[in-house]
Every structure is written in C-alpha cells, then in structure tokens.
Design a protein around this nucleic acid. Structure first.
Length: 390
DNA sequence: GGCCGACCTGTGAG
DNA sequence: ACTCACAGGTCGG
C-alpha cells in the first residue's frame, strides 16, 4: 500500500481519473441491468462502478434487490474508533454492505465520533452521524419510489411514457452543494467532455487526496476555503477554465462572506423560488445553473433547468408556439418551467431529467435528428438538405 | 422587459 | 491547413 501510494503521487496530475465529482448529470441508472451507468464514475469491474461522495470512495454494484457497496480507506477517519473495529483488506476496503433498493423504513442513525468535517464544508452536521447505509440511501434518494412516480408521470404524458421506456431507473442524486455549485459554474456555454475535465482539474489542484488503491488516486472536491485564495483565478485561467476562472473565485469569496457552506446549506430550508433568487446573486450563476443546484443538491425537486436540450424538447413537444424564437428570455424560461411543473407536480425536475436524458442521447447519436423532428428522420434527402442549411 | 454580442477553449465538420 | 460553429449559459449594454 505504501509503495503504490508513493508511485501514484508522482504522476497524479496526469493519470488520475476519479474524483468526487459527481457533477453534472445528477442522475444515475441504477435499476436496469442494461443501463447501469454512473456518470463520471469509473467502471472498475464487470458490473461495478467506483466513485467518490461523502468523502469516501465507493464501489457499487447491484442485483435485483440490493445495491451492493464497498467503501475504501479514508485517511481522515483512520484513527477513529469506528474504523479500528472494521476489517481492512489490502485493497484499502474498510467496510462493505448492501442496501435494499426501496426500503420501507429508514434504519436508525449510527453515531460516529469523528471529526469528518475538517474543512468546514464537506458534510452537513446531519451527515456526520449517518451510517454508510444511510449515506447511500440519501445519495440515491432511495426513499423515492421510482415505480410509483414513473407510473404517475407516464399517465399524465405520453411523451414521457415513451422516453421512460428507454431510461428506466434514472435517479436524481442528492449531491454536495459546494461541489454541485462549482461544477455547474463550469458548465456554462461548454461541452460535457470539457466540463468533466475541468471538475477533475479542480479536484487535483485543490481537493484532498482521500484514497489511493488499485492504481488510482482519489480526491474529494475542494473545500470552499481552498477556492478563496487570490491565486485561484489566475491558476484556473492557466489551467484552461477561461472566463469561468473568475466566476469560481468570486463566487467562492462571496459565499464565504455570506456564511460559507452553512449559508449554502440553509438554502435547502428556503422555498425553491427564494433559494434560486439567492443563488442568482452569485457571479456565474444564472437561471439555469441555479436550477441545477436547486434540483441536484438542495432538494428543490420542482426546479426545471432549461438548457438547450430541454428547450428543444419543449418547443417540439409541448409549447409549439415558441418555435422560431432565437433566445430564451426569462419569460420563456419561466413559461417552460411552469409548464413542466403543472404537468408533473412537485417532483417535476426529476421527471424532466428523463426527458433530458432521452434528448441528450438522441443528440449525441445524431445532432441533425432533433432539428428535423422525429417523423422525418428516415428521409435522407431531407437530412442532406438540412445539413446544407445548417 | 427584450435583444445582442462578447466571453475561454476544444473539437469536429466543411 | 484553416476557418467556423457550437457546446447542458451568463453578463452588461
């Protein structure tokens, strides 16, 4: 273990690919075997995925009934009573277990006497006393019954029903607000590959190393305080963050002024509208990014992030009178959000994510397709014509 | 309130 | 080789 750790420190910047990312696509397919896919997680086995959250490295797999997990060594916790009593293997695994996919009741909380929150912003106070079973339940929001909601949304909307057939088991994750906020600042006017690499860079540059095994170094997302150093803006610009470098630095500073991660956490207790309004005061955060943060890390599941994909879907399927509009004004943005909220109800953001997945997949497979509309896809003549126009 | 253009950078199409 | 448009937007005029 020691030997390999030294080896990987040498080239950490180049080789590491796993981070506390969680990032961006705050969803995961965890129910259908075929679709098992944890975005920005690394596939580390046949049906096994490894990634970071709650300051731990998790390796997950699943069967029909359970999510199976292994949690790896976490240096910050090593000296605690809790871990002393757990068995460690050479691979650094210190505990393992399984969580039922749809538990009927939440087991009691296990208190760990540890200073987990050493940077002041990794965990909520509540998280500190959660068992790993509960951390996993919380992260995947396993208290929400997908079956029930999918049925409800399908009943209201035939287009959802169709999309849902291909995208079963999509879950909105409950992610760390600090991580989510800065990851989405990176997302503006950007593509997924570059966003991912930027989040990785943030972790390497400013995150803490939390584990090192099987040839990979794992970092968590940087603590807020690491992003308020005056050198941050230039460093990030040099690292290729473009104009987002300033947004990251300035937002970090402003959040610290407002009360740090406690301030961010307290947005959970506000209404969705209030939380969104507060977030929009930070540089680099507009309506869309604010909605992503609300939906994916603050528990405001009625938030509908209207990005280019959702806008296209809305125009094609739901609000045809918007056809031809070139820019999404605040008014149009809100109209789209309100439409989905009235259609799907209080978990509208969750339902909308399934539509998003379907459009993103279609777009990645064939960018021309969505401009044509579904009916005309097979006509190659039209395809050529459109390509010329484009 | 709505409408533009600028903004960093990497990538792929033409 | 070399533009050019575009990618899960935001901001200021």
């Amino acid at each position: 273990m020691k030997r390999s750790r030294r080896r990987h420190e040498l080239d950490a910047g180049r080789r590491t690919r796993n981070f506390a990312n969680a990032f961006v696509l705050a969803f995961v397919y965890l129910q259908s075997e075929d679709n098992t896919k944890l975005l920005l997680w690394k596939k580390t086995g046949n049906c096994e995925w490894t990634g970071v959250f709650a300051n731990r490295v998790w390796t997950l797999s699943q069967n029909n009934e359970y999510i199976l997990y292994r949690v790896t060594n976490c240096p910050a916790l090593e000296t605690t009573e809790k871990l002393k009593s757990t068995k460690k293997s050479s691979s650094g695994v210190h505990s393992a277990g399984r969580v039922k996919g749809m538990p009927k009741k939440t087991p009691t909380c296990e208190v760990a006497d540890v200073e987990i929150n050493r940077n002041g912003d990794v965990f909520t106070k509540h998280d500190e006393c959660l068992s790993e079973d509960d951390l996993l339940r919380k992260y995947f929001r396993l208290d929400v019954s997908l079956e029930e909601h999918y049925a409800q949304w399908s009943k209201k909307d035939p287009h959802f029903k169709k999309a849902a057939k291909k995208f079963t088991g999509v879950r909105i994750l409950s992610q760390n607000p600090v991580e989510t906020l800065f990851s989405f600042i990176c997302s503006s006017n950007n593509n997924i590959a570059r966003i991912s690499s930027m989040v990785e860079k943030l972790c390497i540059l400013y995150g803490n190393k939390i584990a090192d095994f099987d040839g990979t170094v794992y970092y968590d997302f940087p603590p807020l305080t690491a992003l308020t150093d005056p050198s941050v803006e230039k460093s990030l610009r040099d690292a290729g963050f473009g104009y987002r470098a300033k947004f990251i630095y300035q937002s970090a500073c402003k959040i610290m002024q407002l009360g740090g991660s406690d301030w961010l956490q307290h947005l959970q207790s506000l209404s969705y509208e209030e939380a969104k309004m507060e977030l929009k005061k930070l540089p680099g955060i507009g309506a869309k990014v604010a909605d992503c943060i609300c939906l994916m890390s603050l528990g405001h599941l009625e938030a509908i992030p209207v990005d280019t994909h959702i806008y296209q879907v809305a125009v094609q399927r739901y609000l045809p009178h918007l056809r031809g509009r070139k820019v999404v004004t605040d008014k149009i943005y809100n109209e789209i959000g309100s439409h989905f909220r009235s259609l799907y109800g209080s978990l509208a953001g969750w339902a909308h994510t399934i539509l998003f997945c379907a459009d993103l997949k279609m777009f990645q497979d064939d960018p021309v397709k969505r401009k044509l509309g579904i009916k005309d896809i097979e006509t190659s003549r039209k395809r050529r014509k459109l390509k010329q126009e484009l």
